[in-house]
Design a protein around this nucleic acid. Structure first.
Lengths: 332, 332
DNA sequence: ACAGCCGATGTCAACGTTGACATGTGTCAA
DNA sequence: TTGACACATGTCAACGTTGACATCGGCTGT
C-alpha cells in the first residue's frame, strides 16, 4: 500500500480511502490511485484489515464429520451459498466424527477469530466449553444434531416425524411386522429420534413394539448382517425401515444377495441411484442443502445483532419419496 | 495478551515466549503464565500472529466445482488430511464450474495471503492471471485437470489409460461395437482424455472408429437420452463405455427402463451402489483421496522450498473393478 | 577478583491497515 | 470582507503479535 501511495505521491491513508470508498477523494486522485494499483498488482491484505477493523475475521468456521460424504458436502454447499454473498469466507474442517478433532478444529477457528461457528457435533462430545464464547456473543449454530450439555441454536431434520411417516407408509401397505435397522444405539441423536418415530408409528397403529425386530450396525456391512439376522428370525419381519443411508445400502445389498424381492423397504435419506434399484428404493429424503442454508442464515441474523439469548431450534421437514420398495405387499 | 501479562506481572513478550516455547523462561514464570492463560481464557490471535510473522496466512485455499459432489468432497478430504497435521487450515470455496466464481474465490484467497493455492479449474477458464503469483513463489497446484494457458503443477487421474483399459475390457469380452457416452465435448479436459483412451483401445484392437457411436450429455437425463439414441441405431452397439458418473447413472437408468439386460457397460468413476445394481456395475475407479493427498504434498514440498521452476505433473492411476456389467457377452 | 558468559526478562519497533482528528484550501452567504 | 463550511488530504496511533537487541544479575573459570 505504501508503494502505491509513493507511486501516486499521496499517503497510504488516501489509497485506503480510495479502496474502501471511504471519505471524499478527488476524482483525479482516485483514478491515479486505481491505475497505480493495477500497475503494481497491489492487493489489500485482508488479514491486516480484519485485524485493524474488527478483531474478527470475515470468515465462518464449519466443522463437519466427513467431507467425502455427500450429505455433509451438500450441507457445506448450502452454508457457502448463503455466506459468500455476504463477503464471508468459509473455513472447513472434518472431525472424523471424533470429539477430539472437533475440539481442536474449533480451537483453531476461535484462534482465527472467525465471525461465526457452525458445527455438526460428533456424538461423544460435550460442548460446555463453548458456553463462554456463546455468552460473549459469538454466533454458534449446530447442524444436523443439537449440542450436548449446552442450549444453543441448532438446525436439524424432522427426524422423528420423517421416520414416523416412513414407517406409517409401510403400515399403510399392510405390514404388521416391520424391522428397524439403525446405527449403533449409544448416544447418536438422529438414531434416537428416528427410533422414536418408528415407535410413534407403531403405537398410532395400535401395534405392539417387539424388541427382537430392532437391529443395529455402524456401517454397510454391519447393517447387511443385521438384516440377515432379522430375516432369520422365527417370525421374521415382512418390511424393513432403514434409519440411515448406510443401513439402506446394507439392507439393499442383503436383500439382493438373499434374492428376497418380497421384503418391503423404506430408507431414511435419499441415494443417488435409488430409482435404478430393483425394486426402486422408497425413501424419506432429507434436505441437506436446506439445513446448511437455514443454519447459515441463523448465523447471519445473530451477526446482525439479533440479541435473543434464547437458543432457537429449526426443523427442516423431510419428504417421503415412494418409488416401489415401500409399496410391496406383505409376503405372508 | 497484555491482560495475561499484567495478571502475572511480566511483559507481553514473556507471555509470547511461554506460548511459543521460544527463548528461555523460568519454570515458575512459565507456570504462572499458563495459569493466568487458563484463568482468563486467553487465546492467541492467529491473525495477528500470521501478520507479524510471515505476512502469509497459515492456510491453504482450495477451489472445487461443487461441495456436494462426493468426488470433490473426497478430494478435499485428502487435501485436509495432509495439510492439517502441518498446522495449516483449509479454506474452501466452490466455483459451480464457472470461471468467474473461480476467479473471485482465488482473489479472496490471495487477499488473505494464503500459503498455497489448490484449484480444480473450471472448463472455461484461463489461468494466465496467476502467472505473477506463481513466479513470486506461491505454491499453486491444479487438481483433476491441468491449468489453461499456463504451465503449472497439476495432479490428474490416468484418464486416458483408464478409459483405454475399460474399453479394452469390453473388447476382451468379444464386443466389436462399443458406444461412448461422455460429457459435452467442448473443452472439458477429462472428457477429451477419456475419449482418446477409447480411441486408443479401438485402434489397438484394429477396429474402425465410428463417429455414430459417440454421444454426449451433460447430466444424467441427457446421458440417458444419449443411450436411447445409441440403442436405436440401425447397427447399435452391444456395449457402452460411460465416461463419467453422470453418464454411468444415465446409462444404467436407460438400460433399466428399456429392460436391456444384454448390453454390456463399463463406467468411469465408481458409484456407491455399483455392486447392488442388476447387473453389478463394472467401473474404472478413480482415487479422489489420492489426488487430494498428492496435490497437497506437492504444495507442501513447494512450501518447503523446492524451488524448481519447472511445472510438474502427477498421474494417479485408475483401477478397473470388474463386477459383471462389463463381462456380458455381445448379444448378437 | 574480574572477565566472560548464560539465563531471564524487558524495550522498542514493525507487520499492513484504518479510525480519530488535524490541516489547509477554496467557495459561498451574510 | 469575513466567518463558516465542505472538501481533499495528511498525521498519528492503534489493532495483537513477535523479531532484534538491550539489560541485569549471578555463576564459572582462572
Amino acid at each position: 500500500m505504501a508503494d502505491v501511495a509513493r507511486e501516486v505521491g499521496v499517503t497510504a491513508k488516501t489509497v485506503s480511502r480510495v479502496l474502501n470508498d471511504d471519505g471524499p477523494v478527488a476524482v483525479e486522485t482516485r483514478e491515479r490511485v486505481m491505475e497505480a494499483v493495477r500497475k503494481l498488482g497491489y492487493q489489500p491484505n485482508l488479514m491486516a484489515r480484519n485485524m485493524r477493523v474488527g478483531a474478527r475475521d470475515a470468515a465462518i468456521g464449519l466443522v463437519i464429520p466427513e467431507m467425502g460424504n455427500p450429505f455433509f458436502g451438500t450441507v457445506a454447499g448450502g452454508v457457502e451459498s448463503v455466506v459468500r454473498p455476504r463477503g464471508l469466507t468459509l473455513i472447513v474442517g472434518s472431525s472424523s466424527e471424533t470429539a477430539e478433532l472437533e475440539r481442536s478444529l474449533v480451537a483453531t477457528f476461535l484462534a482465527r477469530r472467525v465471525s461465526g461457528l457452525m458445527i455438526v457435533p460428533s456424538a461423544a462430545g460435550d460442548h460446555r466449553y463453548l458456553r463462554a464464547e456463546r455468552a460473549a456473543g459469538l454466533p454458534i449454530v449446530f447442524l444436523d444434531r443439537p449440542a450436548v450439555g449446552m442450549a444453543a441454536d441448532h438446525v436439524v431434520s424432522g427426524n422423528r416425524e420423517g421416520a414416523r411417516q416412513g414407517v406409517a407408509h409401510l403400515l399403510a401397505h399392510g405390514h404388521r411386522r416391520i424391522g428397524f435397522v439403525g446405527d449403533l444405539p449409544a448416544v447418536l441423536y438422529t438414531r434416537r429420534e428416528r427410533f422414536q418415530g418408528y415407535r410413534d408409528a407403531l403405537e398410532a397403529a395400535g401395534l405392539p413394539f417387539d424388541r427382537a425386530l430392532v437391529e443395529s450396525g455402524h456401517d454397510q456391512e454391519a447393517a447387511s448382517a443385521a438384516v440377515v439376522r432379522l430375516l432369520a428370525l422365527p417370525d421374521p419381519p415382512t418390511a424393513l425401515f432403514a434409519a440411515n443411508n448406510f443401513a439402506s445400502m446394507g439392507a439393499v445389498v442383503a436383500l439382493a444377495r438373499a434374492r428376497r424381492r418380497d421384503v418391503a423397504l423404506v430408507g431414511f435419506d435419499d441415494l443417488p441411484l435409488a430409482e435404478v434399484l430393483e425394486p426402486p428404493l422408497t425413501v424419506v429424503a432429507q434436505d441437506p442443502a436446506a439445513i446448511g442454508t437455514a443454519a447459515a442464515e441463523l448465523v447471519l441474523s445473530r451477526l446482525d445483532g439479533r440479541p435473543s439469548r434464547a437458543a432457537c431450534r429449526e426443523q427442516i421437514p423431510t419428504r417421503l419419496i415412494a418409488r416401489g420398495s415401500g409399496e410391496l405387499p406383505p409376503s405372508r
